[in-house]
Design a protein around this nucleic acid. Structure first.
Lengths: 200, 200
DNA sequence: GCTATTCTTGACGCTTCTGTCAAAATACCC
DNA sequence: GGGTATTTTGACAGAAGCGTCAAGAATAGC
């Protein structure tokens, strides 16, 4: 390791993430990334080879940013509370005016998945990871009776991931209105409502 | 009206819709549209002035294509059946291998809303239109007791629109897997499940 | 059949994006 | 301190996209 890198990769990825998040994959050129990150275009090509590897890093940084919140949420005993906390991670992200509207992963899933197989793989993997965490939670909750029986843990998990994506789309489609997002989260939660009287 | 248009506008819009649907707004150039529709680039500029007006027509054609199905769905008396039919409109669209994966409106909402104000307006209007149709349905169903009281019709409406968008994102993210979409629809429906024992 | 009108077609100039490269700069190791 | 490996930087050529335009073609009305 000699001739030494002048930019901070972590910071670069953070800025690139913000750029992709706000403008999407297709609407972000290498020149845009150079502008946003302060790193010269040539340096980015030299270090990473192109746009896709940078997006992959941005996606990982994005996922890492909320991972902790999701883990804490799923440490809750009551499904009602756990899912409320899970959805709140997403609501809070969209409610923060410092963040671009919508959701990076959702945006990428819709418009970059066809551009490069590595992107499709990463998106699929990230989605699956969250689904599996929720599935594990629901499976355990079903076993020890915290969750009404008769619900498929995997389907339930995918349902809540879908809801979180739906919230992001609605957020973007309605010009960043956070109230709509809250309404949706609240209704989604009702799926798990009143477990003591349901499905007996 | 003299020197007469040589292409069929309806057919052109249909092809343009398919192109936007499959590849998104940003990844579709005027040259791509010319290729896809068989209409020369110059003719498209002459007739419509640019890409955005063509997308607006495509969005309208897209919405019109499913409108009937939604209306029929919301003619069902039982909320359970109505929403099942509503979701089935979306499921069936994604299940049809002749269609591109995902959903045009969802894709546009995520990646074209910032490109042109007219697009943002149209998307917002289309989303709102569906939300209002559902809201009317839920409001009426609440009044005459088909729906358990205590649910906000508007929130419920937005929730189901969000679910339909979430299904589209999941469809695209998981490489067109229709089973996942079905699972999600089925779980969403459970929100309205067993109204006779819920929320009394 | 002539005219007026509009669409079609191919071409043009301009801008943006991409990917690469060679020269210059830098800092570590010996 | 010299050598070496690596990054930085600016520049380049080629491709693609955009928007416009002038000339040609076609048709309805007179």
């Amino acid at each position: 390791m000699v001739g030494v890198r002048r930019f901070d990769e972590g910071e670069m990825v953070e800025r690139a993430m913000e750029r992709f998040w706000r403008h999407g994959w297709e609407a972000t050129s290498m020149a845009d990334l150079a502008d946003a990150t302060g790193v010269q275009r040539g340096s980015l090509y030299n270090a990473y080879g192109g746009k896709a590897p940078i997006l992959l890093m941005a996606l990982d940084a994005y996922a890492a940013r909320w991972r902790m919140g999701v883990e804490v949420a799923l440490a809750e005993r009551e499904p009602q509370a756990a899912i409320a906390a899970f959805l709140e991670v997403h609501v809070a992200r969209m409610a923060d005016p410092a963040n671009p509207p919508g959701c990076l992963a959702t945006s990428v899933a819709m418009d970059a998945v066809d551009a490069d197989p590595s992107i499709a793989e990463r998106i699929d993997a990230q989605f699956t990871r969250t689904e599996e965490a929720l599935e594990r939670y629901f499976a355990e909750a079903t076993v020890d009776g915290r969750l009404t029986s008769g619900r498929d843990p995997r389907a339930l998990a995918r349902f809540f991931v879908a809801v979180s994506r739906g919230m992001a789309v609605m957020h973007k489609a309605h010009g960043g209105d956070i109230n709509i997002v809250r309404e949706i989260a609240s209704e989604a939660l009702a799926t798990l409502d009143k477990p003591e009287v349901r499905g007996i």
